[in-house]
Amino acid sequence: MTDTAAALPEDTVTDNEITSVLSSESRLRRIVTIYLPLAVFIIVLLFPFYWMGITTFKPDAELLDYKHNNPFWISSPTFQNIRKLLFDTDYPRWLWTTMLVAFGATFLSLLSSVLAAYALERLRFKGSGYVGLGIYMAYLVPPSILFIPLATVVFQMGLFDTPWALILTYPTFLIPFCTWLLIGYFKSIPYELEECALIDGASRLQILRRITLPLAVPGLISAGIFAFTLSWNEFIYALAFISSSENKTVPVAILTELVQGDVYQWGALMAGSLLGSLPVAIFYSFFVEYYVSSLTGAVKE
């Protein structure tokens, strides 16, 4: 919220400047230079979701006939596609697996990141800078260059085609981000608080549990949301490490199980995409501010 406050004075400056010109002209200019482009941006950014939603509820007859129907609207909406998806396919199962994997990976990453961030930021030790840099560098290794050797590692460990393959590998791209985010939060907590507790005879772990963590809750929420959405959206590991239909996650399952043959079931595909996007979208809508602050904070760090 502080950032909107910071933006206000500057806006009044530009407003003053504009009102110094003829007011009617400046109003028009403002509409053309600000609101019009902004509206185009929003329409373009949202259109695929609108199209996804409207296709989901269209009956097949309307879907493939633009001559007699307005394609932008539905004259007789139907739940047929969603019903088909929920009852004729393994979709509920895929959703459940995705949820399980996302929560498992998020929990594991948060736990490891909290401990690592605490050690790096609070228990200053020789070489902590190098360890921190190492963790940061891990963020720069993209999954696309790791999945082939990682597939062999997962196979050798006997985890291939189990949810554990994903729960254990997702933290590799979650931990670096979460650790850096949490280090930033821990930095903002005065060290004197911990010193007081230390003098009172608290052990280090008690300090972490009773003083540092409660004060770092916003950071934990940000890191948790970020980790959850990233694990929900992950694709390449889930595609490479899971082979049986019932263990697939939603993004992979829709692409590999619902796309069959040459005639695509667009209604069902869009229904699957919509339902697969909704959980993250809802989750995100509750914590938008945390999400935005973690996204921007991570870049500013």
Partner: peptide
């Protein structure tokens, strides 16, 4: 505006 970034890439 952030929605396209949140939603799973494969689904969009």
């Amino acid at each position: 505006i952030l929605l396209p970034y949140i939603v799973p890439t494969v689904l969009s």
